[in-house]
């Protein structure tokens, strides 16, 4: 990279300072990278770089600590909201957030997620919903769509066998403890900009002591879906967003 020789006045846009030079391990086109960038930008813009602690999940984002230069603690599968609760209760002035995938948040960690949100801990959750277990090789997730093929529902998700996709974000919106619940996506530039605003609002509400928040990012997993990155974004728009409709499900922040 030639950043060293670029005069500052010539620089329009570059990698956020909080993102280090370690190339990310994610597959080509993976939404995680975009969301990592948004999180880094928001923390930088809030001036919270010295006070942010992320709790990373088990799943593809387990390595988030390698890319974002803030402090991290890695939780067991599904337990990020509990771990974050422990940190935040000891250090209320820190920006403590969790970053979780759909298997982590909506299957093995459903209890920890809903109860943390319901307690109204001042902790935002970034929820990556790509409707599949990516890290383990593409198994059915709690959010896998009806008819969607995965390695453990090879003939497509059948509600009779596999139950229904879980709209956990709608559940979160019903909880008294949450102040902001939003569903966003990152498949195009306009969506990414909206997603960033939602993350900013969630992080700000935590620092203002307004309660818990959840920002679901409907995401792609091109490897798991077995599509090219561009096709995966098209599939997301066609199928995912039909079932997982975007927008703020709850907002009592008053911003």
């Amino acid at each position: 990279m030639q950043n060293d020789v670029i005069a500052p006045e010539n620089l329009v846009y570059a990698k956020p300072k909080l993102m280090n030079d370690t190339p990310m391990h994610y597959c080509a086109g993976c939404s995680h990278g975009v969301v990592h960038k948004l999180v880094a930008e928001v923390i930088e813009e809030m001036g919270m770089a010295d006070k942010a602690i992320g709790v990373s999940p088990v799943g593809c984002a387990v390595f988030a600590y390698r890319y974002l230069d803030i402090d991290w603690q890695e939780a067991a599968h599904g337990r990020a909201p509990a771990v974050a609760t422990g940190i935040k209760r000891c250090w209320p002035d820190r920006l403590v957030f969790t970053y979780q995938g759909d298997g982590d948040l909506a299957a093995i960690g459903t209890a920890e997620t809903l109860h943390m949100l319901n307690r109204g801990e001042n902790i935002p959750i970034i929820f990556i919903n790509n409707a599949i277990y990516g890290m383990t090789g593409g198994q059915m997730a709690p959010t896998t769509l009806i008819g969607q093929k995965t390695t453990t529902c090879p003939y497509g998700r059948d509600p009779k066998l596999n139950g229904y996709p879980l709209k956990i974000t709608e559940m979160a919106a019903m909880l008294n403890g949450t102040c902001f619940v939003s569903r966003q996506s990152v498949e195009n530039v306009a969506s990414i900009r909206k997603a960033k605003r939602a993350i900013r609002k969630a992080f700000q509400s935590a620092m203002d002591g307004k309660g818990s928040s959840l920002v679901e990012i409907v995401s792609t997993c091109s490897s798991g879906w077995k599509l090219s990155p561009v096709k995966a974004n098209e599939w997301l728009e066609e199928h995912m967003l039909e079932f997982y409709q975007k927008g703020d499900l709850k907002d009592t922040t008053g911003y």
Binding site: Q73, T85, G86, I87, K88, A111
Partner: peptide, 19 residues
């Protein structure tokens, strides 16, 4: 914190201990 489960309780301790 009265946790929602023993699992959550020990993982809260994991978070708190890290501070």
């Amino acid at each position: 914190v009265q946790a929602e489960s023993e699992l959550a309780a020990i993982n809260m301790v994991y978070g708190a201990a890290a501070t």
